[in-house]
Write a protein that binds this DNA or RNA. Structure first.
Lengths: 224, 224
DNA sequence: CCAAAAGTGTTATGTTTACACCCATGT
DNA sequence: ACATGGGTGTAAACATAACACTTTTGG
């Protein structure tokens, strides 16, 4: 490779996180409001420029932490965007990630050095976003549906285990379908993706529900 | 983004193509022998450095054409590798693509400005490769299996249509399983991924076989 | 003892597997 | 006419879908 050829270098990269949650049955995505140019004051996915001495995943986690304080979130790369003019400043790749968090267990920073605000938006009601994030959030929503049926992206969402009725609602919210309770339970159990923990979770005035966890190995079986 | 920060730029990218074919039932991958440093004289996947004024896919196709003369091949990005030191010269992303061609319909250039040789290697017998291509070819083989069961990557392999017995052998070769002829036909037909062309293909001394084509829309249904 | 949600079983329906015979062609 | 591989149908096994009752808890 002729390193003196300027065509071979002078590139940079963004990392762009679509962080989802489920809030009372509504699927929501985390957005931040930018302070800096370009696209100052606009809402955007949790994103930023990557350093050339870190890995892509490290950059994604760093940006997420810097702009929202979220840590230890499982992120999965789902796409690379590379329109030549997608950034007005420099040729920038966009590495897109997806993650899912429990809204009740996280506390989002409202303002940071580079952001004015941060909030959860229902995926049916997303404001106009900076860069090419309008397109990216749409493909992330599609990918979320795909991931939930073939892999257990939900493992990260329920690190301490989950009950089957809980996760049932999550599937219904994301896929926008309704699934028979009893058949859902049977399918999930027979998939061998989850296992019983011998613990139960109590809900007020209701029969306690068994707590399950995702097994380590993912078999990549299509569920729905 | 503070453009004067050197951490934000000075990156480059490789495009790395795993081109597969099926030669008399054996799955093979296309390798080239490098002329230039680094890794001069070593075998490698069909790859090269991307220009900062082209898209990633354009770069992948350009490299494929420059080093093998192959054109109009359908390429799909399957992975991004980003170890910080994967290239000794510069921070380089590696964008990995997969493609599949019909060995009887292509003619590979043996030598180019940047390559000494090019050849097809059975995937069970691959020489030591340049860069991190040993790892990449392994994940490409796994991805090939995955793609063949969920999408019709074979569409590009059979642009003029195929017969069911032909494609049946391809599935068996790649997945290394045996599938009942009659059930294979039924599953593929009922998947609605393919349609009859009302043409037939003659084989010497055998009953002519119907020619099918893949439909445009891919439904992403898991077949096996 | 009542309401609310968790947990279980059974039958019907659809899908996949296993398997055997007939058909069109070139020699 | 026969050898070779293409094309079709059917019954058994298995998986999925539809559906109703019992259990545990807090109030």
């Amino acid at each position: 490779m002729e390193l003196n050829n300027p065509l071979y270098k002078n590139m940079g990269a963004h990392v762009i996180n679509s962080i989802f949650t489920i809030d009372h049955g509504i699927v929501k995505v985390l957005l931040i409001r930018r302070k800096n140019e370009p696209y100052s004051k606009m809402w955007a996915l949790v994103s930023g420029a990557m350093y050339n001495n870190e890995t892509i995943l490290t950059a994604a986690k760093r940006e997420l932490k810097e702009k929202t304080s979220l840590q230890n979130i499982n992120l999965e790369m789902i796409d690379v965007v590379d329109d030549i003019n997608r950034s007005p400043l420099l040729r920038m790749f966009g590495f897109c990630f997806i993650g899912i968090v429990d809204i009740d267990k996280v506390n989002i920073l409202k303002e940071t050095k580079k952001t004015y605000d941060a909030d959860w938006f229902p995926i049916d009601n997303i404001p106009n976003l900076a860069y090419d994030h309008n397109r990216i959030i749409l493909s992330s929503i599609e990918k979320l549906k795909e991931l939930i049926t073939t892999s257990s992206i939900l493992k990260a969402f329920y690190p301490n285990g989950f009950t089957i009725p809980e996760i049932h609602k999550v599937y219904e919210s994301i896929l926008k379908i309704s699934i028979d309770r009893r058949n859902f339970r049977k399918k999930l159990l027979s998939s061998e993706l989850i296992e019983d923990t011998n613990h139960t979770k109590n809900f007020l005035g209701k029969k306690p529900a068994k707590i399950y966890v995702f097994k380590e190995k993912t078999k990549n079986k299509q569920l729905f």
